[in-house]
């Protein structure tokens, strides 16, 4: 299992926990991630709001590098995943876009490099049966809300990730860890992340709505696969509590962090120290079998 790995800019800044846990989990599962040399920014939300051709060209620069490696491109950031998928989709469906991007990059690109999110390769390439064999520390008793947000599932014709209104990839992976996924209707709602710095109160209100729904469903943590969602729900939780006069204490962790714990990887190697809201409830569930061993 070899892939071209695109970390994305947040991997070295706001989402080091996402990156570190992805690498640790890959190592434990024998997934070979080959970082794309010289990778560049996918353009994120600022490029597509400014200039469509610029956005597609920035994303395609990395897809061309992945093509040279002859492997599928694996992305763990849902936003980078989305921009790369949309670029492929636009290239395939618009001759004008294909020409414009070729002119911008100085070489042709046909939109054919497969872009996969890390959770997709866990479920579809490795599979539930193989994953279960590696679980040494089942997170029994932990209730988790699987949260997808926007970038993984929309637009469905470009991402093709899963059912856009009721995806279940994250739930199936949560199930592998031994934790229990809660039934809730907020999983593809928007956290408001794009306005995090520009219209902060909108983000705070949208994210609070998501946290409250997860809480009402009985979740002890929210599990994400997108750094924009993680930042909004985790870092902005103090602002939500201040604005709405409530206490949430809802840990917001990456799927790779949750899976890593179940694989027996130490929390330090999974970036748990980077979280703003204490992940105590999650770590308690992970420690349980160790305590039983000590007693026994």
């Amino acid at each position: 299992m070899k892939y071209a790995y695109y970390p994305g800019c947040s991997a070295h800044s706001t989402a080091r926990d996402m990156h570190e846990s992805c690498l640790a989990v890959s190592k434990a599962l024998g997934i070979e991630l080959n970082e794309i040399k010289g990778w560049t920014c996918c353009g994120a939300s600022s490029a597509h709001q400014t200039d469509r051709e610029l956005a597609a060209s920035l994303a395609c620069a990395n897809l061309l590098k992945a093509r040279q490696m002859g492997m599928d491109m694996v992305v763990n950031c849902a936003a980078c995943y989305n921009r790369s998928k949309v670029a492929n989709y636009e290239i395939v469906n618009s001759v004008q876009m294909r020409q414009s991007v070729a002119d911008s990059l100085g070489e042709p690109y046909d939109g054919s490099v497969p872009v996969r999110h890390f959770v997709e390769i866990l479920l579809k390439d490795l599979g539930v049966a193989a994953l279960r064999k590696k679980i040494v520390n089942p997170l029994t008793g932990l209730k988790a809300a699987a949260y997808y947000g926007c970038y993984l599932v929309r637009p469905p014709e470009a991402t093709g990730f899963d059912d856009p209104e009721n995806p279940t990839i994250l739930e199936r992976l949560i199930d592998v860890t031994g934790a229990e996924d809660v039934e809730w209707s907020g999983k593809v709602d928007c956290c408001g992340g794009m306005q995090n710095l520009t219209r902060t109160e909108i983000t705070v209100r949208r994210s609070a709505a998501v946290i409250e729904m997860a809480q009402a469903a009985g979740a002890q943590c929210v599990v994400v696969a997108c750094p924009m969602c993680q930042i909004s729900l985790d870092v902005r939780q103090a602002d939500m509590e201040k604005l709405l006069g409530k206490k949430y204490n809802m840990p917001v962790i990456y799927l790779t962090q949750l899976l890593g714990l179940a694989l027996g990887i130490s929390p330090e190697k999974l970036g748990f120290d980077k979280l703003m809201v204490s992940p105590a409830a999650v770590l308690k569930a992970a420690r349980k079998p160790v305590r039983q061993n000590v007693k026994g």
Binding site: T14, G38, W39, T40, S57, A61, L105, M276
Partner: peptide, 20 residues
Amino acid sequence: KGKIAILPPSGADKGKVKRI
């Protein structure tokens, strides 16, 4: 916590981005 990087990013193919 290292949740935001202090130093600028390095290692990117800057020439390609400049051209774009």
